[in-house]
Simulated scan of single mutants.
Amino acid sequence: MQRAVAHRFGWIALLCTGLLGAADAAGGPRPGPPDPGIDALLQRYDGQVPGAAVLVLHDGQPVFRRGYGLAVVEDGTPVTAQTNFRLASVSKQFTATAILLLAQEGALSLDDRVKRWLPSLPAAADTITLRHLLSHTSGLLDYEDLMPRDATAQVRDLDVLHLLERQDRTLFVPGSRYRYSNSGYALLALVVGQASGQDFATFLRARIFQPLGMAHAVAHQDGVDDVAARAYGYSEIDGRWQRTDQSPTSAVLGDGGIYASLDDLARWDAALYDPRLLGIASLRQAFAPATRTNEPDAPFYGFGWRLNGEAHWHSGESIGFRSVILRYPAHRLSVIILTNRDGPEPYPLALQIAQRWLDTLQ
């Protein structure tokens, strides 16, 4: 373990000295080496269209790192490794980590009833625990289904709580089934605030992003912070790319509100191999099967992670964005794809890219 820790800290030192953030003479990021096979897979993202950022990490090294297409179509801003994309549901692993950090410090317990922290929830939530929220087994109603169909104003995590306060029922007995729940992760963000005495965005910045050197990662709040080197989201409508960056649910932080870049996520990936952030026991909890799912590509769910054999992964999907992080810890291999368009889903691409390395490792 000491050798593994030293190796990962060496990787962070390389990051800090500019391996991932090196600039060429023109002041831009140094592009990754070409790879015709990956370039062919990403062809639809290249050119004057909403783009993608791709990173492959193997044994702590960036073996492929490249941007394709545009972060801002209107002015031709290209995608780079420093471009910050909305992670959508990839954000859930950060929310889960915030809860695990507080649990290992004794500020809360995963078996706490959620009503200990959010007492305004109705009686139907009496038996729901934080563990249920983390593993999508709470039975809470989906807040998206409770919003007016013609809603245009953005809801926030606290608004999700208010929507659920009026619903004295659950979809099933808490703990008895799996059903993916954005509502649960919005409530977890509020629990982080209650247990830590800091708002969720501040906690993430102080306890996760800054310690790991994720300099520009942010749980974005419009009017409160700015997203550096921001990618805007787009949808193809009537054959043209139109900006569709925000929806009424885009301001909810706990289930999908984080922006980050490839370079930030390389630091995040490194921290998942050793106890610099979460202790070993907490890391094991995050990646242990907490519940069986009904999803063929992920038969088990941990805490913010889908689990399929050796693969730990999660995708993110919100208006104008698709993302995925796919990890094979036993092979120290990770593939990260961030895109600023409504489709296609990048998970199949990540599998294809990962297989190129797995074929040589097995």
Rank of each mutant, 00 (worst) to 15 (best):
Q221V: 02
V54G: 10
R169W: 03
V227D: 07
Q167S: 00
P31W: 15
M214R: 04
S181K: 06
D145K: 14
L262P: 01
L15H: 11
G309E: 14
R341A: 09
A26D: 15
P211S: 02
W313Y: 15
S138A: 11
H132V: 01
Q167K: 07
E295L: 14
G197C: 01
L164N: 02
T137L: 11
A6P: 04
G256V: 01
R156S: 03
G316D: 05
P33D: 15
L146M: 06
R149C: 04
A251N: 02
D168Y: 09
L361H: 06
P34V: 11
E165S: 00
R66T: 08
G213Q: 07
V324L: 05
Q242M: 15
P78C: 12
D111Q: 14
T339W: 09
S334Y: 10
I208T: 02
T339Q: 10
I353Q: 10
A271K: 09
D222Q: 13
N340T: 10
I237K: 11
S89N: 06
I237T: 12
A125Y: 11
W305P: 01
G223Y: 07
A217I: 00
A125G: 01
Q285C: 00
I237D: 08
P148C: 09
G302V: 01
L161M: 03
V324Q: 03
Q61R: 14
T244R: 15
P248V: 06
P289D: 09
C16L: 13
N84C: 13
W305S: 03
A288V: 02
A281H: 12
S282D: 09
L253D: 00
G69E: 13
A81Y: 09
Q48W: 13
S250D: 00
V224Q: 08
L100T: 01
V72M: 12
G27H: 12
L164T: 00
P50D: 13
V324W: 03
D264K: 06
D111W: 11
L133H: 06
W305T: 01
A26E: 15
L283R: 15
V49Q: 13
Y143I: 03
D297E: 14
F9W: 15
L19E: 13
V160Y: 06
Q352F: 07
D159A: 07
G184D: 04
D297M: 12
D46Y: 10
L361P: 01
P296F: 11
Q61W: 09
R322L: 02
W11K: 10
L187A: 03
D157K: 04
D274H: 15
D263Y: 08
A228W: 11
A215K: 12
A25N: 14
H58E: 13
L171V: 04
